[in-house]
Amino acid sequence: MKTKGEIDFENLQGLHWHKMGQSSFTGSLLELFKDLDQYFLRWAAKWKAQEYYFPPFLSAAQMQKLDYFKSFPHLITIPVVLDDAQDNLKAFSEKAVNPQGSILLTQLSDVRQVLTPAACYHFYDELEGSNLHQAKFVTTRCVCYRREKQYTPLQRQWAFSMREIVCLGGAEEVKTYLAEFEDLLQQFFQAQGLPVKFEYATDPFFNPASNPKYLMQKLDPVKKEMIYDGQLSIGSLNFHRSFFGETFSIKQNETPVNSACVAFGLERWMYMMVRERGIAPEAWTL
């Protein structure tokens, strides 16, 4: 059996690595993916979190309200469609792709959407303008898209799956939720013998030194990452204060809600399980 760190993830049985930054998987690996998500859903059930399904697009206008394009232009993936004028479509159809595999775009329609960069954004968009009567717990799993300089199977992908469990409510309720979830995770990692530590972190801002939001996160940390084996963040706990509540006018008793999310990167959890427990699927049971 290969020891930790020597596993060839590109050629893992059941995994097809697409060098553009995506993985397909089947068989035992797909079972591991589903089992992990079921585990996250069991945690979500502790807070009676309501599950949602969301489509892949988010409105650019909504993301603009969050200053997303200023903070993370390097991460964003933008879906485009061609202008549907007949001559434009004809020109495209005649020479759509060059020999290097790049699409030769002709005139585009207005671009008004982005592909989901993080699952929880959908909730703030969905709940915009609402008034909550009590703290709300919600969960979803989305394929998320983040452009990176380089990609590694399961560890760093352009497209990956994220499960998030979000709490919206008063500041104290939200802080309690995060503290309780962190305790639960600490106990889980310890019981499973998984080398995961919690560390304060900042979001990967573009030009961080000139971004006040980055500075604020350094001075007043609101993000804790679950760092596996000192090398890879497999999830995070994030306290947003009333940022989303104010931006999207989501209120509780007429006051903008605080919010927090706990996020899990599924492919990274798969990586951790395989690297820690070896390639035999019997050892992946939680």
């Binding site: 304060y200 030194a209 006040p212 939001k213 500075l215 604020m216 350094k218 001075l219 007043d220 940390p221």
Partner: peptide, 26 residues
């Protein structure tokens, strides 16, 4: 967060020394 930048400038004025934002701690 927007005012933090101004506060840093104000501090630099008070202390007469530049402040390295990368060195700032929680």
């Amino acid at each position: 967060s927007l005012q933090i930048m101004d506060l840093i400038l104000q501090l630099e004025k008070i202390t007469g020394k530049p402040l390295d934002v990368e060195q700032l701690k929680p």
